[in-house]
Simulated scan of single mutants.
Amino acid sequence: MQETSQADQVVITAPHRELLDQVLDKWSLQVLDKLCGRPSRFNELRREIPVVTQKSLTATLRRLERNGMVERVVVATRPIAVEYRITPLGTTLQDLIDALLRWSTANMADVERARARFDAEA
Rank of each mutant, 00 (worst) to 15 (best):
S56F: 02
D119S: 11
R41Q: 10
T60H: 03
L45N: 01
L93S: 13
T4V: 10
M108P: 00
I97K: 14
R115T: 06
T13F: 00
L45K: 01
R17L: 02
T91S: 15
N67T: 02
R63D: 05
S40D: 01
L45I: 00
V70E: 07
F42D: 01
A114I: 01
V51K: 14
L32V: 13
R85Y: 06
L32A: 13
D25R: 05
S56N: 09
A59L: 04
L20M: 11
Q30M: 13
A81Q: 10
A109R: 11
S5T: 14
N107G: 07
T92H: 13
I97P: 14
A76N: 09
R41F: 03
A99C: 10
R47G: 03
E121G: 12
A106Q: 12
Q2H: 12
L64C: 06
T92C: 14
T53V: 12
V10F: 05
L24K: 02
L57T: 04
E48V: 00
E44T: 07
P39R: 07
A120Q: 13
H16A: 03
N107E: 12
A59T: 01
I49G: 04
Q94K: 14
L57M: 15
Q6V: 03
L32S: 14
Q30S: 13
Q6P: 01
L20C: 04
E121Y: 12
K55I: 07
Q94S: 11
N67I: 08
A122E: 12
L101S: 10
Q30R: 15
R102T: 13
D25G: 05
R41D: 03
I80P: 11
S56K: 08
S28H: 04
P39I: 00
V10A: 10
E65Y: 00
R102H: 09
A114W: 02
V10S: 05
R102N: 09
V70T: 04
R17S: 03
L19Q: 06
Q30W: 11
A106F: 03
D21Y: 00
G37K: 11
M69I: 06
L32E: 11
T91H: 15
V70S: 09
K55W: 09
T4W: 08
A116H: 03
Q6T: 02
E65G: 06
L20P: 01
L100D: 04
A7Y: 07
S104W: 03
E83P: 05
P50S: 14
K26V: 01
C36L: 13
T105G: 02
L29T: 15
T60F: 01
S5H: 10
D98K: 15
V31L: 04
E48T: 04
L57W: 05
T91R: 15
E121A: 15
Y84S: 07
G37P: 02
Q6Y: 06
V82L: 12
R117E: 10
S104H: 07
R66D: 11
Q54M: 11
T91L: 15
W103V: 08
Q94F: 09
W27D: 09
L61I: 05
I86L: 15
N43Q: 10
L19F: 13
C36S: 15
F118C: 09
W27T: 11
T77S: 15
L35W: 05
D21L: 02
E65Q: 09
V51G: 06
Q22G: 05
K34L: 11
F42L: 03
